[in-house]
Design a protein around this nucleic acid. Structure first.
Lengths: 129, 129
DNA sequence: GGAGATTTTGACAACCATTTTCATTTTGCC
DNA sequence: GGCAAAATGAAAATGGTTGTCAAAATCTCC
């Protein structure tokens, strides 16, 4: 029903890595879109609730969003310099989390796993400095 | 040097799970401590920087702290109901993170891994109603 | 096509954890 | 004691996010 939500989703899809709400808002305005910050937040939240985008928190507490290729459960390998993100599957980690939880009598196990690093091209440009 | 920082550290040590800064502050005041919120934040930050407490972010963006028994790298199994926390080691996860990063040409790999669940006593009390 | 109900939108204000500011107090040192 | 440096904390500022509410867009039934 909402063109706005789709517009937000599209903007996200065009991005390489995770983007903040403010960021998405700024970009959309720059491209001439008539949309309010409130609506961007609402759209992002709706998309996240519907599982159409992934959310994570930066170190400084900002929520960042990404339209992922895979709808299945997966994790992220994020370049801490340029934000470039690779989706990775980790069956070993899933099993480990379940096992660890089970050992201690925990049920309804969920987990958060994110991997950060410096991607190849960023470490190259740092060396070129 | 600072009695304040120790007091904050002690308060944290007496707690079972992760506590927010506001939380620690409230508790200290309740016990008659003369301390300001600013100082609690500063102490917590210093302790975190020094690796004496672990930090993580709740879903709603609040920072929560915990004085952990182990100074070594470890992860947490947190009860999402009562906050009860178990420290767990996960050599398999460490290796997995390194491997995944390496495969994609990433260097200086770090990772965040947290496991959530409902602990045995909480699921028992839920069943009991 | 249109009146009225319903939903969506967005400018603005409110929230709230966290940080900054800065004047005061405490501490370390001689 | 006296003085400089560090620590403290009350109050104000910050900033991402959420709530409010009136205007605008959309739907619905006739």
């Amino acid at each position: 029903m909402s063109t706005r939500r789709d517009a937000v989703h599209d903007t996200l899809r065009r991005s390489e890595g995770f983007r903040s709400a403010q960021d998405v808002y700024a970009e959309m305005r720059q491209h001439g879109a008539k949309i309010g910050l409130t609506t961007v937040y609402r759209a992002l939240q709706a998309l996240a609730d519907g599982g159409q985008v992934d959310v994570l928190r930066t170190d400084d507490g900002e929520s960042v969003y990404r339209a992922c290729a895979s709808g299945d459960h997966h994790h992220h390998l994020v370049c801490r310099r340029c934000g470039h993100t690779v989706e990775v599957a980790g069956p070993a980690v899933e099993r480990w989390a379940e096992a660890v939880g089970g050992e201690h009598g925990f049920t309804e196990i969920t987990h958060t796993v994110e991997v950060f690093g410096t991607c190849a091209s960023c470490s190259a440009s740092v060396r070129a400095g």
